[in-house]
Nucleic acid binder design. Structure first.
Lengths: 215, 215
DNA sequence: CCGGAACTGGATAGGCCTTTCCGGTTAGGT
DNA sequence: ACCTAACCGGAAAGGCCTATCCAGTTCCGG
């Protein structure tokens, strides 16, 4: 559904150029990339950028709706795997690889943008799939019983920390951390865990992070 | 050795007030706290602050030398533990708790400041202790054999990501992540790991992070 | 082909940041 | 008690950021 209210042909062309430029810039520089750098990369003026996306948050939402689609696809692929544990671990590695390949997406996975309806709807859909994925892996006896969906968000936060800190200097480091985490997820559990944070607490945390990131 | 070149009494008093204020502000707001907010908290003017610490990096270095002492103390305590594995896990939890209680320190542990001789010297001393700690735990058969000192830095980076992302909204979340990581460290290893990043790569990563953080 | 709405780029406003500058003030040896 | 060097606070310079404004340009229906 690309046509909300049909744009003039040149405006539509510029909108597309902005989106591809923003995708590249956010991937390379993270969400802190400036609007000016996006405009420069797109070869348009600042006014054009802000007319189409009145606030930086709108641009971020538009850019990462697509990535969230890829996230949902990864969930679907995992659910289709006959071995739930293999599906889950494959899924985790895929998503963490997406974080490593896209600094912006790494951050987006640790935040929530309530005004970005499309993005958050896709995230919710993916979330329900993740819950089923977890239940399946638990039922198969491969995933520790005290695992929660919030643990996946925590993993994304941890991986974002590793990816942001290591950058291009230690490109494979995140892979090792993720492998360690996956081994700790596998049943049987080696010991008890502190209580998982409440879903609402995680939501508040993600909300706060986004407010702090987009002024 | 508090007296490099003796200051006038009022200057010495202000220096102390700046340091305690900076400790509080960096703990609460992380390394991104502004110099102005430190000056305000300390009740001194900006000129006073910058005369005593010509660049923000100097202030950061001075403030976190103390914290690095606490880090070194934690290493010493761990080395004194008769059970190397217990010492190691206790150490990890102590240091990660320090990260959770001090946003600035959480970041400092993922960076390096080559011009801050004192801080880096303490870090090196602690590092040698950590190497011994790891060797001891491996020799006792409690720690997986493919564990490396770089894994501890990666853990700090991951924990910094969790702590920064969850903030006050999910205060205990980091504890769960750390518990999971520790279980994955325990021998016997559940499976092979991707190669550990080279020490030099980690150094470069930490260097880049600090340059990116202190303009 | 023409009029006007939609659109454009670049200048600009206004915010926060680090760092420097300057005129007044204070400590402390003599 | 006094002189001077060290010290002080606040204002200002210069940078980067998001977001807005304006005068000129381009699309497109009639």
């Amino acid at each position: 559904m690309p046509a909300e209210t049909s744009l003039r042909s040149d405006a539509e062309r510029n909108r597309a150029r902005i989106l591809t430029a923003a995708r590249a810039v956010f991937r390379r520089d993270g969400l802190n990339a400036s609007m000016a750098s996006v405009a420069r990369e797109a070869g348009v003026g600042l006014a054009t950028l802000f007319r189409r996306f009145p606030a930086k948050e709108d641009l971020v939402a538009a850019v990462f709706s697509d990535r969230m689609d890829a996230y949902a696809d990864a969930v679907a692929t995992a659910l289709a795997d006959p071995d739930p544990w293999h599906g889950l671990t494959e899924f985790i590695e895929t998503v963490c690889a997406m974080q490593a390949a896209d600094y912006g997406f790494a951050d987006v996975l640790t935040m929530t943008f309530p005004t970005a309806k499309g993005l958050e709807q896709r995230r919710d859909e993916a979330y329900h799939g993740v819950v089923r994925l977890i239940e399946g892996a638990k039922a198969a006896g491969s995933l520790r019983q005290d695992f929660t969906p919030e643990d996946l968000v925590l993993l994304h936060m941890a991986n974002a920390g590793v990816v942001n800190a290591t950058g291009d200097a230690a490109p494979g480091a995140w892979h090792r951390v993720v492998a360690l985490m996956i081994q700790s997820f596998e049943a049987p559990a080696r010991g008890p865990l502190p209580a998982s944070p409440e879903p609402d607490a995680m939501y508040q945390a993600m909300l706060r992070a986004s407010r702090q990131c987009l002024p």
